[in-house]
Design a binder for these strands. Structure first.
Length: 462
RNA sequence: GUGGUCGUAGCUCAGCUGGUUAGAGCGAUAGAUUGUGGAUCUAUAGGUCGUGGGUUCGAGCCCCAUCUUCCACCCCA
């Protein structure tokens, strides 16, 4: 009779101590930068009312939401529904129709929508422009792949209550600062939804904007010909596709052949507005020094449909993994919760992908793995008591220390110190208790010195 | 959600066209060394071969289902 092996749901992970130390290093780096720009932390619940989440991420997003089954007799509602619908033809067992009756809560899909809900709910307590950051897990019922998990951590910074393009620039600065601090080389891509709308406008396919952007986004991936095929398949006319060709050729829309774009958008009001915005952002960016490359990339689309202005995405230069970071401006996200005219802009860092990239490129500093600095060897009952006191004094000086819990062979205790990467071991037996000195062994060099406890503390405080 | 792929000891893997009691390296534990670690040597433990069915005299190997992994699509951090 063997129990089934314990396991965790698909796409989720346990984090062991080493991984946690690395992840915390990432979180702390990100948090420090956020705070440097004046953002303040908030948290929201893991679960939201399903009505808060549904319809915010497009049809695809609704499918990827984890829905929580109502507690108690959820079938009751279904039975009532069946009774009522017996005469009507709502006999369909369609799960989509059933969902609202059996599930009223869902796990959050991102941090932006719950934040919008938060802003509306707490609008009278907040100081605007409200700058907040939020580091929490999100859940998506996606099919897992490399760098794609069903539970993953996002680190969001957003500011709501201002249309200022200074914030767009601030987000680029934050992004640059974070990836510089972590040592990851990235390409920051910037575009503007209004320009994309203007392009669709200019080729007479304003209603096909989502189709055009989705296809354009794939230019780097599948190439020009396939994109053109897909456009036609998505119902864009041949003339329109023909007109789009010069746009597809643009490397950086604000460099060399920038005239192409402004000509193209001349008759589109929204397009001109977008170009104006992005030029202004560019003017700001010229003033500050960035470590990483950035490009005004017309091909950048981004799927979330609440973006209305600037959009940003960041990719690692040295690892093939999805984007590590993405965001943009949304003019009316709080509108759906009853607070109109509250423009926001924000960006989200994917902690798990950043972790995977850093691991692959060996970017974690070796210094972050140490925890305990001194191990007191256990020689027996009297010595234990003696060490208990010494260890307390070491800790009081801010140095992490531990005492081996059993009197076992020194070899075994030393081995424990080695495996936990503890740099110093203290040997205090009867002789040492008598003399008041302790033997301190440097586990790296193997050297051993006799000293008093205060000398050890001084040594470790260096 | 669609199509494909992987799964053998704690880890990395071997295992012939189905044929006795399924192997290696590393790791673990114990000892050589009862106050001195990393090396070496010796010994020991550890697997219902992801799970459940089926075919067969016989299945780690073949078939079906299911879970998991990774990949492509979709979409995205």
């Amino acid at each position: 009779m063997s129990l089934p092996k314990p396991s965790i749901p698909k796409g989720t992970r346990d984090f062991n101590p080493v991984e946690m130390i690395r992840r915390n290093f990432i979180f702390e780096t990100i948090r420090n930068v956020f705070q440097m720009f004046g953002y303040q932390p908030i948290e929201t619940p893991a679960m939201e009312n399903l009505s808060t989440l549904m319809g915010k991420y497009g049809e695809e997003g609704d499918k990827l939401l984890f829905k929580i089954l109502n507690s108690g007799d959820f079938m009751h509602a279904v039975q009532n529904l069946n009774l009522k619908s017996q005469n009507s033809e709502l006999k369909s067992q369609n799960y989509k129709d059933l969902t609202p009756y059996i599930s009223e809560k869902g796990l959050r899909y991102d941090l932006t929508v719950p934040f919008a809900r938060f802003v509306v709910q707490h609008q009278h307590e907040l100081i605007f422009p409200f700058k907040r950051y939020q580091i929490q897990p999100v859940w998506r019922a996606d099919r897992p792949q490399k760098g794609r998990y069903r539970e993953f951590f996002q680190c969001d910074v957003d500011v709501v209550g201002s249309h200022s393009l200074l914030y767009e620039v601030e987000l680029v600065q934050i992004t640059d600062a974070i990836f510089s601090a972590l040592g990851i080389k990235v390409l920051i891509r910037i575009n503007n939804r209004k320009i994309l709308a203007g392009i669709a406008d200019a080729v007479g396919a304003a209603d096909k904007l989502p189709d055009i952007t989705i296809a354009m986004d794939k230019l780097d991936k599948i190439g020009l010909e396939k994109v053109n095929e897909e456009l036609i398949q998505r119902g864009i006319s041949r003339e329109a596709v023909e007109k789009l060709q010069p746009i597809f050729q643009l490397e950086d829309m604000l460099k060399s052949n920038a005239g192409i774009l402004s000509d193209f958008l001349r008759n589109s009001e929204i397009g001109c507005k977008g170009l104006e915005e992005i030029e202004k952002v560019n003017d700001f960016l010229k003033i500050i020094d960035l470590n990483n490359k950035f490009i005004f990339d017309i091909k950048l689309a981004r799927g979330l449909n609440y973006y209305t202005g600037t959009i940003i995405e960041v990719n690692a230069l040295d690892v093939a993994i999805g984007s590590m970071c993405g965001g943009g401006r949304y003019d009316d996200l709080t509108g759906i919760f009853g607070l109109p005219d509250m423009s926001g802009v924000g960006i989200s860092f994917g902690a798990d992908r950043i972790h995977d990239v850093m691991l692959e490129l060996n970017l974690f500093p070796s210094t972050i793995v140490t925890s305990t600095r001194v191990l007191f060897i256990n020689f027996g009952a009297d010595e234990e008591k003696y060490c208990l006191n010494l260890a307390s004094r070491v800790r009081a000086a801010g140095i992490p220390a531990e005492i081996y819990p059993e009197q076992v062979k020194i070899k075994k205790q030393m081995d424990y110190a080695n495996r936990k990467n503890i740099p110093y071991v203290v040997l205090a037996g009867q002789d040492e208790i008598q003399s008041g000195y302790i033997a301190v062994k440097d586990m790296k060099s193997g050297e051993q010195h006799t000293m008093v406890i205060d000398e050890l503390i001084t040594l470790l405080q260096l």
